[in-house]
Design a protein around this nucleic acid. Sequence first.
DNA 1: TCCACTTATTGATCTGAATTAATAAAAAAC
DNA 2: GTTTTTTATTAATTCAGATCAATAAGTGGA
Lengths: 255, 255
Amino acid sequence: MSIAAQIAHDMSLAEHPFVARLSRFMKLSPADLSSLELIVESERLVKKRKDLIVVGYEYRDLCFVKDGYAIRYKLLRSGKRQILNVILPGDIIGFPVSFFDRSIYSVVAVSDLTYTICPLDSYARLCHEQPQFGLALSWLAAHEAAIYAEHIVDLGRRTPIERLAHFLLEIHARLLAVGRAEKTSFDLPFSQEVIADVLGLSVPHLNRMMQQLRVEQLITSRSRLVEFTNMASLQTLAHYQPLDLAPIPMLVKRA
Amino acid sequence: MSIAAQIAHDMSLAEHPFVARLSRFMKLSPADLSSLELIVESERLVKKRKDLIVVGYEYRDLCFVKDGYAIRYKLLRSGKRQILNVILPGDIIGFPVSFFDRSIYSVVAVSDLTYTICPLDSYARLCHEQPQFGLALSWLAAHEAAIYAEHIVDLGRRTPIERLAHFLLEIHARLLAVGRAEKTSFDLPFSQEVIADVLGLSVPHLNRMMQQLRVEQLITSRSRLVEFTNMASLQTLAHYQPLDLAPIPMLVKRA
DNA sequence: TCCACTTATTGATCTGAATTAATAAAAAAC
DNA sequence: GTTTTTTATTAATTCAGATCAATAAGTGGA
């Protein structure tokens, strides 16, 4: 890589949304960034609707999403699809599948998407040199688990309109954390079919719930731009509670 | 601690179900066990129905369950309860709540329970000395996330009887991994009320599904002893897929 | 600019599972 | 061993949300 390209690469990593996420619970020195720099490989672009991970196949990379959107999902015999989580910029495509023998679900891009490849082996090697990255991964995993936990509450015990309200607030918060949303509005990058499969609803019913949120003046939306007109009420409706990660303790570097 | 007590303690850690879980994806040397030994604190016993974690409060320990059962749950305004996951021997009570400012859900014991206390700070310190433990935590977190993902599929798109079948198979596999189940049978340590709150069903409906599994000769059960009489059919019904963690790569010790 | 395809919206019907309520059985407490 | 509490079982009613079906509006590609 030429020096100019290297610099461009460095700069892009510093403003990589994955780094933005890490920064929320750990301090990243320039040296840390360089360490990360050394283990990531090429950047890749995939087109909308392209599969990133296929269920049943081995997968051993922690790809960091730079831009674009994807979904983790599972298909059932009946042809029904359940989406486990949506993948936003800054998320790790290969978590948690890279930790298993074979992928337990599929991932498909729902928009054009760019990501940085980081082999799990390289990351593990980095952890042995810089142990804080091992902890960082646990932190991200805890965040992911907490998001999943909220989805379980959504699907198990929340009403359809509560689920939708919660989904909108969650996506907004996650986009905000990586600078992809405004204070009270954002561009929803998912079709109603996708949202229905996240929330375990039928598309017609989801559509009605969307309308009800508008009727009750909790949101306005034209096309896919969503604006919260009454955030407090929406949060109450959704039982929404922000997920604030604590900082990693004991980040003292060893000599 | 007296030397005799220390030895007893050491021995108990080696056969601690948490160690059994770690051993499934990493090799633990006697030195590793000693390192763990140094950071765990006292053992504690709580009685059935006693709260272990209360939503909204700070919590900073990774307690490893030695014996007994508990549940992570959230209560909604309506008084409904959703159980996020059941906690079995070998599980970490403080995951993922210890990584957040304040606990995002509650944990209550559903039987008498013993656990080993391990402060998160101490564990983090250990990770800086022995980086493989940071990775180990990520591995456990990935496992937890995968279990949650299956629950999302259960709640979103599986029928009640499929959910129940899946639940029984999952619990059996998890108990088997820590030596708490037989090959095709196990003692179900949860009431129907608990299972209903895991699966997002009402108690009467869960009860009917339980009967249907018996009628269809997939299980037999008297009291709480469950026996799988047709494991293959049950797995098919449940869309069950075992979760096999890959080993941690690059476990070379640094000098 | 048009065509093909995807996505959003609306309406009518019907079923699965919640709800409520009551009882039976089992376990725990005393 | 008896009482109290918890847990399991059964039945009748109700309704939320799926399903099916059709149309409208958008979007992207050639």
